[in-house]
Nucleic acid binder design. Structure first.
Length: 501
RNA sequence: UCCUCGGUAGCUCAAUGGUAGAGCAUGCGGCUGUUAACCGCAGGGUUGUAGGUUCGAGUCCUACCCGGGGAGCCA
């Protein structure tokens, strides 16, 4: 291994110099005396030009032999080249084949989800996955920076627990030396413990939910960041959540331009993610949801879908008519276009099927229910940035939430909803401080008091106002990267029916 | 659990109930700058499974299996 090898991402600072690159062949284009090799090294991708007259025979035949994902060492000079991503390419002087790859299953063309998921261990090498997971990395870094700069202490909550926080139906149960134990659903309660010991803390760990949800927003194993702060009320909690999200988005916007470009992410909506976020109470949200304004937005959306579909269908008909009379290469273009059209029409059809239900759900929404996925999406349509909804009916929130002193029906909870249909990325609130209230809540939720004695102790020994929230890492990354599915935001997604690789 | 869409070549997809095709990938040949390169040729199929309707089924019907998306629930 060559210690002097340069990372692709650093090449811009090596223009005009001779370098050694180590990596894998992502794609190759050939003409008689020239190979264009796209070399991937994990830090980026660079085009390497291998010209027959510039290299020796061994190098030339190595370049000829190299298949997709073959491992290579390339030597050459870095030259500036306007048309390349990153602005540089390598003029190769030597090619060494380290390992000849067998026929690679993931080709440069499209593949289906199931096929790719079965090959997740290889799929991770693809550009989109690279971009998505680099954004994940940047977000994780920002999370730690944000809290560490503010004097928060990182404290891990246990993953194995003896008690449930949320409903028991979504718990993964395991055998713990003959007793039942559960994989954690939230570090919440332990976070409160640590906040009483360290003041301001945050947990960062995996969370498990045995929900039988098959949607683009659900994983059975996901990562959650849960800050918990002593002497914080609901407003301070919302301020923190707002600053936090702005920071994550702006860091990615600044440091992940290449990744966002690769994902074809429209960055305008991200640039608008600035404080303050609209803060609306649950009751105001219900009013908004059931208002004519929401129905108008739905109507407009339905019309847009209809117009788009008509245009696509007209184009489809045109293609069908002309198909028999055109040249081969044109026909191929038409085939490709036809596939894109079919896919989009499928999406529109589904949206058109769902829209009436969305409208009905919004129109008939009654105070007291929790918002469904479509309701949340509709609420975010009214705004151009994330929104915070606070003061939910106590009945739909967790037992440990503090009641609103001004209205006992309400809990001092808050959710942050991401725009563009990505839904809830934060859930949290101010915690109840009163021992007797909590004991009653535990009883009413049918939970065993004994299991919460240690939690009750926090209210016996110096109980103070405190608050916190949980941020879903994968949903956040999915939203920032505008990814179609949450499974692309984590290296090895765990979902219903998916445990491997 | 329910609703909905789908399963055709290694992959992605076509195919008014009437001879199963295209692109990519693979192999061979061509091309001095390509950007999912391009051009030519070749090999590649028990249309998810089991029944049924029909002169004839990839296409219609029934059941089952597998997958996508959504509801419920949630980050």
């Amino acid at each position: 291994m060559d210690k002097s090898a340069v990372a692709v991402e650093a090449l811009a600072t090596h223009v005009g110099k001779a370098v050694v690159l180590q990596g894998w062949l992502q794609n190759k284009r050939a003409s008689k005396n020239l190979y264009f090799i796209e070399l991937r090294d994990g830090s980026g991708v660079v085009q390497c030009v291998v010209a027959k007259r510039e290299v020796d025979d061994a190098s030339w035949s190595a370049a000829a032999q190299a298949t997709q994902e073959s491992a290579l060492v390339l030597r050459g000079q870095v030259v500036a080249h306007e048309r390349q991503i990153g602005g540089v390419e390598l003029q190769a002087s030597g090619v060494e084949l380290i390992s000849l790859a067998e026929e690679y299953p993931i080709t440069p063309k499209a593949h289906g989800v199931d096929f790719l998921m079965d090959r997740r261990h290889l799929w991770l090498r693809s550009r989109r996955q690279w971009a998505a997971l680099r954004i994940r990395n940047r977000v994780i870094m920002s999370i730690h920076e944000f809290y560490q700069e503010r004097g928060f202490v990182q404290m891990d909550a246990p993953i194995l627990t003896g008690s449930a926080v949320e409903g028991t139906s979504t718990l993964f149960e395991i055998d713990y030396f003959g007793s039942p134990a559960y994989l954690t659903q939230s570090g919440q309660l332990h976070g409160e413990v640590m906040a009483m010991a360290f003041g301001k803390i945050y947990t960062f760990g995996p969370t498990f939910r045995a929900e039988k949800s098959k949607t683009r927003r659900h994983l059975t194993e996901f990562w959650m960041i849960e800050p918990e702060m002593a002497f914080y009320d609901l407003d301070m909690n919302m301020d923190l959540a707002e600053d936090f999200i702005v920071r994550l988005v702006q860091d990615v916007l600044r440091d992940c331009q290449a990744e966002l470009t690769m994902l074809k992410r429209d960055t305008a909506p991200l640039a608008r993610v600035q404080a303050p976020f609209p803060r609306i109470s649950y009751s105001e949200a219900v009013e908004l949801l059931t208002s004519p304004k929401t129905q108008e937005l739905l109507q407009q959306h339905a019309e847009n879908l209809h117009t788009e579909r008509s245009a696509l269908e007209a184009e489809q008909a045109q293609i069908g008519k002309r198909y028999g009379q055109v040249k081969q290469w044109k026909r191929r273009q038409m085939d490709a276009r036809r596939i894109v059209i079919n896919q989009r029409i499928g999406e529109i059809e589904e949206a058109q099927r769902n829209l009436p239900q969305w409208a009905e759900s919004a129109r008939d929404f009654v105070w007291g229910k929790d918002f469904g996925g479509s309701d949340e999406t509709l609420l975010t349509w009214h705004f151009d940035r994330p929104i915070i909804i606070h003061r939910y009916p106590a009945a739909v929130k967790a037992f440990y939430m503090k009641r609103d002193p001004e209205d006992d029906r309400l809990a001092l909870g808050m959710d942050v909803l991401a725009p563009e249909g990505y839904g809830e990325i934060i859930g949290g609130g101010e915690r109840a401080t009163d021992l007797f209230f909590l004991q009653r809540q535990v009883d009413e939720h049918g939970l065993p008091r004994e299991a919460f004695e240690w939690y009750f102790d926090l209210r016996r020994y110096g109980s103070v106002p405190h608050a916190g929230f949980g941020l879903g890492l994968e949903r956040t990354v999915g939203w920032i990267g505008h990814l179609e599915h949450i499974r692309e935001t984590i290296p090895f997604p765990r979902m219903l029916g998916r445990l491997s690789p």
